[in-house]
Design a protein around this nucleic acid. Structure first.
Length: 566
RNA sequence: GCCCUUGUAGUUCAAUGGAUAGAACGGGAGCCUUCUAAGCUCUUAAUGAAGGUUCGAUUCCUUCCGAGGGCACCA
């Protein structure tokens, strides 16, 4: 495995430096962008030239000499280039063997053991019952699902959790809105739409109408107290409709949660935690209980229990951390949210460090940017939202027009269109670093060409088709071939990419890599005839098979399915 | 006003402090009698501004300009 190779080379370099009397903590071994600069390169000669008191190129020369004293069969040659880089070139024998090893690993290809023995819980998606499941939730879901898979591929035991806001002002607003809406008994989807409209109505009323605001606050208290039978009924029905509906979406997205947590529970418990720690949480204005963040550290004072005596987001999160731990004693708890809560989360972690110090250390907050429309920000308050369902449906229609009606039955067309649509949507989210906003343009973001999910799926389907055509022909990574091309080398980078995606918790590294690999393969495919019966056919088939496996494993890490045909 | 994030081709995104800044879309020119044209080949075009640190800066620091988010009872 190349990742092991990289570590091995790092050791070699450290030892060579040591032999020259230079103490090196960390050495950086990078993969040059330009393959003519070798398979790996290190800048240590430039970095330590000053310490050594000689020129970088001179130091590089001495290092190369040292390294070559104990020759290894993996390294073909070393060269000194540019201002003093040392470039390593790996031997063809080693590279061929590495490809063979990759094929033998099959579905495990790309995995590592960095998190072996660790328990990791990942919380994401977090839609609010009584509100729309919009494309922002799609963003959280895509990122969370992928991170869950990356963490698992790094050896951790992984659990998926979804945290849902079943109480709070948004619920009260919706219920107030439902009461204002005329009755009707439409089916599930329409009931969901009614909830969206009701929320919009309630939110507007709350802002613009004093009377409505008072009524909504009243309803909110009734929900907590269960003191009004009609409110309870509207609440119970609405909650069930929402949760059932969410399940249909999770299913489409390919997410299966292990645990569901609800704000009604975390709020109750969180409030207790706050009240039990008067030394940490103080009385604020109007009877609220607050946590005074350290202004020096840029932390604000935040309300944990409001003047109505109800827990806020912060208290709920505090309770959630402990409830999660009691449910599943994690080593790390990854929480994925939108970046608009970043400031609150920092205050929360500061408070948590005092109440549950061990849990605060284990909590990792990852925030994603907003999904913005070219026209501006979405708002469920004004009803200006794109729901996940409508986006999936529209994308599915677009995909359907490209599917052959001759090769696939209508059921198959439907299933395939959905896989492609979900792939396109997820890819459009995962292709960029997760902290940044996504400018979401239907035409541009959901392309089926070039830098897109369907391009990757198409590439996989091509490899499958080719392997099927090959039938029982010999596949041999050690077969006859001249040189080792970029496609071959790029294939072997996969485990390093997974390692990096895990370290940085950034799925987009995998997305970028897969696009590069797919481009490399499609170029190879376009310029080479694989099944030509010539002597290097077994080797070419090994490349195809490795691309196939890597594409499948990589797409899986992104949470995107890989159809066999399309 | 203060805090956080952010600024890369016309557009949407990449680039662990490294060597010639990489893709896609769009524009231009080609390729289906060979394994899937959701494809391939060629071409066009970018680091907001000014300083600083460094052998080397898209990356780190400072200032300015622009964008997004937050700044006590919504999440």
């Amino acid at each position: 495995m190349l990742s092991v190779m990289k570590e091995k080379l790092e050791m070699v370099v450290v030892e060579a430096l040591g032999a020259l009397g230079i103490e090196a903590g960390v050495v950086v071994l990078e993969r040059p962008a330009d393959s003519s600069h070798g398979d790996y390169a290190t800048n240590v000669a430039l970095a330590y030239a000053k310490v050594a008191g000689i020129s970088p190129r001179e130091l590089a020369g001495k290092l190369v000499e040292k390294i070559l004293e104990t020759p290894t069969e993996e390294i073909k040659e070393l060269e000194i280039a540019g201002p003093g880089f040392i470039n390593f070139r790996l031997s063809d024998e080693y590279l061929a063997q590495a490809l063979k090893d990759a094929l033998e690993q099959g579905a495990q290809w790309g995995e590592n053991k960095k998190l072996e023995g660790k328990k990791v819980i990942v919380e994401y998606t977090d839609p609010n019952p009584f509100k729309e499941f919009h494309i922002g939730h799609l963003m959280s879901n895509a990122i969370g699902e992928s991170i869950s898979r990356i963490v698992k591929a790094s050896g951790a035991e992984t659990r998926r959790a979804c945290y849902q806001g079943d109480v709070g002002m948004h619920v009260a607003k919706t219920i107030w809105g439902i009461k204002k809406l005329s009755e009707g008994t439409p089916h599930l989807a329409t009931l969901i739409q009614r909830l969206g409209i009701a929320y919009s109505l309630g939110a507007t009323g709350y802002e613009n109408n004093v009377e409505a605001k008072t009524e909504i606050i009243e309803i909110n208290k009734k929900i907590y107290e269960h003191s009004d039978a009609q409110v309870d009924e509207l609440y119970n029905n609405g909650l069930k409709v929402s949760l059932d509906y969410f399940e249909t979406i999770y299913k489409k997205l390919g997410t299966k949660f292990d645990y569901y947590f609800f704000e009604s529970k975390t709020g109750e418990f969180g409030k207790k935690v706050v009240l039990d720690n008067p030394a940490i949480f103080e009385q604020g204005e109007g009877g609220a209980i607050v946590y005074k963040g350290d202004e020096e550290k840029g932390l604000h004072t935040r309300v944990f229990i409001n003047s109505e005596g109800l827990p806020t987001y912060e208290a709920k999160e505090l309770g959630l951390a402990k409830i999660k731990y009691d449910t599943y004693p994690y080593d790390a708890s990854i929480v994925i949210t939108g970046n608009e809560v970043n400031a609150y989360f920092r205050v929360l972690l500061d408070a948590m460090a005092k109440v549950f110090p061990d849990l605060a250390l284990k909590t990792i907050h990852i925030s994603h940017g907003m999904l913005r429309l070219p026209t501006g920000k979405m708002s469920s308050r004004t009803g200006d939202v794109i729901t996940a369902e409508s986006l999936i449906a529209d994308t599915k229609e677009k995909a359907r027009t490209k599917i052959s009606t001759e090769l696939f039955s209508s059921d198959e067309q439907d299933e395939l269109a959905e896989k492609i649509a979900i792939g396109a949507i997820k890819y459009s989210i995962l292709r960029q670093a997760s902290g940044k906003d996504i400018i979401f343009d239907f035409e541009q973001s959901l392309s089926f060409e070039g830098d897109s999910g369907p391009y990757l799926q198409y590439t996989y389907a091509r490899t499958r088709s080719l392997l099927e055509k090959a039938g029982g022909k010999t596949i041999d990574a050690l077969g006859v071939h001249t040189g080792t091309n970029m496609l071959h080398k790029r294939l072997l980078h996969f485990p390093e990419i997974v390692l990096r995606a895990n370290e940085e918790r950034e799925p987009h590294h995998i997305a970028t890599y897969l696009i590069e690999l797919a481009r490399e393969f499609n170029s190879f495919y376009g310029n080479t005839i694989v099944l030509d019966g010539k002597e290097d056919e077994p080797y070419k088939l090994a490349l195809v098979k490795a691309v196939s496996q890597t594409m499948k494993n990589g797409l899986s890490l992104l949470g995107i399915s890989a159809p066999e045909r399309m």
